Simulated scan of single mutants.
Amino acid sequence: MTYSTAKSLVNLETLEIRYCHKMEEIVMKQDGEDDEDKEIFFSKLKLLELDYLRTLKRFSGHSYTFRFPLLECVTITQCPRLTMFCPGAIYASHLQSIRVRRDIVDHHRDIWMTDLNNTIQHRFMTQEHSSFEEIFPSLDQIIDFMGKIPPFKVLHIFYLGKLKSIWKDDFQLPPIHQNLRSLSVKSCCNLVKLAPSSASFENLRSLSVSGCHQLIHLVTSSTAKSLVSLEWLAINDCKKMEEIVMNETNEDVEGGITFNQLQRIVLTDLPSLKMFASQSLTFEFPELEEIKITGCPQMKKLGPGVLKTPKLSKVKIEGCDMEWEDEGDLNKTIEMLCSAKDSVN
């Protein structure tokens, strides 16, 4: 489309372009047109999908300013020549998900960086397994971007083989994570720390980590105290993980640690896991209903501290199930089920 046509699309809510095998750009400049100081306002666009456009190089090759005040999701599939969105400024304050797939054997990955151009450039100009060693920079650096990074609720980090940290280990964590509700990390085999000890995730509801073989622990006790909204916790295939919560101070945690909303815990294929927490911490799980532990041969109890699980009704350890009608002793149950399995073997 031309600039004038794009300017007229003020009520457009969805833009999907597929299988146009000679298309090189979406918005083009008309002959003799000056693109300086020109703005295109897609005032109602919420969804943008670009699929199977083998020759597409960019959304626009001209320095227009694009404004997408309601855009929430961008999906790009098999556009192998796409290396940038546009050379001009982009404003998309509600953008939460950028899903890209380079070729037919690749998987969709949700990626969020500082802006749409940076995300496309890094996704399409690097190898399939990214060379990123970190994702979010230090607090001082992030301040410069705060006008461009909207709050986001979902963060999926997959197949970053060289990733060592997600956030810089600053004293004060950048505030861009504060609205995060779902965090999923998969196959980041060199990740050594999920978050700095100062990290706080009051709004996080689901946390899933798998295939991260350098993690020794999941979170520190100070970060665990902030997980007041967490409802679902799943840890899978982390070969070196020895405990879920590490007490970084080696002192009693005042008031203990209460997972107010946690309903389900799934721990799978963690060969080094010994306990949920190795130190004598008090844990309260007022809403926990189910815990499942499979492939954790060294784990014989949850921890040496006090455990309170008033609603726990189902425990499954290495394929052995136990259901409670009243509150039971979780540590004794884990020990008993592990002993029962060992005797069978």
Rank of each mutant, 00 (worst) to 15 (best):
P69V: 02
W167D: 00
P196N: 13
G295W: 00
L288K: 08
L302R: 00
R101W: 09
K240Y: 02
I244C: 04
E39L: 10
S278P: 00
L227H: 01
F59G: 01
I76H: 01
E289K: 06
K300W: 10
R58D: 03
C189T: 15
F68R: 02
L173E: 04
Q279K: 14
I291P: 12
G211K: 08
D237M: 12
Q178N: 12
N190E: 15
A340Q: 13
E327I: 00
E49K: 10
I291H: 03
P310V: 05
A92R: 08
N179C: 15
R181S: 14
Q141I: 08
T75F: 01
W167Y: 09
Y3C: 01
K300L: 13
L70F: 03
V185R: 02
L95W: 14
C79A: 06
S131W: 09
C189N: 15
R264C: 07
Q261A: 06
E13R: 08
R109V: 05
L173P: 00
L53G: 03
P175N: 13
Y91H: 12
L330P: 00
G211Q: 06
S93I: 07
G161A: 06
V344R: 14
K341G: 04
C79M: 04
L9N: 03
R54I: 07
I293P: 00
H107Y: 11
R205I: 05
V266T: 09
S221M: 10
M336I: 07
I317Q: 07
F259Y: 10
M322Y: 15
A92Q: 05
V266Y: 02
I334D: 06
T223F: 03
E25C: 06
I176M: 11
I216Q: 13
E251G: 08
L312F: 04
S182E: 15
E16K: 11
W112S: 10
S60L: 01
Y64G: 05
I166A: 00
N236R: 15
W324G: 01
T5N: 05
H108W: 12
C212T: 05
F85K: 00
P175A: 14
D144W: 07
A340T: 15
L330E: 09
T5C: 07
V154E: 12
I216F: 09
D31W: 06
L139P: 02
N260M: 05
R102F: 10
E49T: 09
N260Q: 13
E287Q: 15
C188H: 06
V245H: 03
L71T: 02
R123V: 13
K148N: 12
E243F: 03
E33D: 09
D269P: 00
I257D: 05
C73A: 11
K164W: 05
L273D: 04
N250V: 08
T14P: 00
F59M: 02
G328I: 03
G147F: 07
E49D: 11
I257P: 00
A340W: 10
T114Y: 08
T14F: 09
E133R: 14
D115M: 06
N190F: 15
D170F: 12
L204G: 01
D110E: 15
L155S: 02
T119S: 08
I76N: 01
D237C: 05
F259Q: 08
F59Q: 00
L183R: 13
H129W: 06
S226H: 15
K186C: 13
N11T: 13
G161M: 06
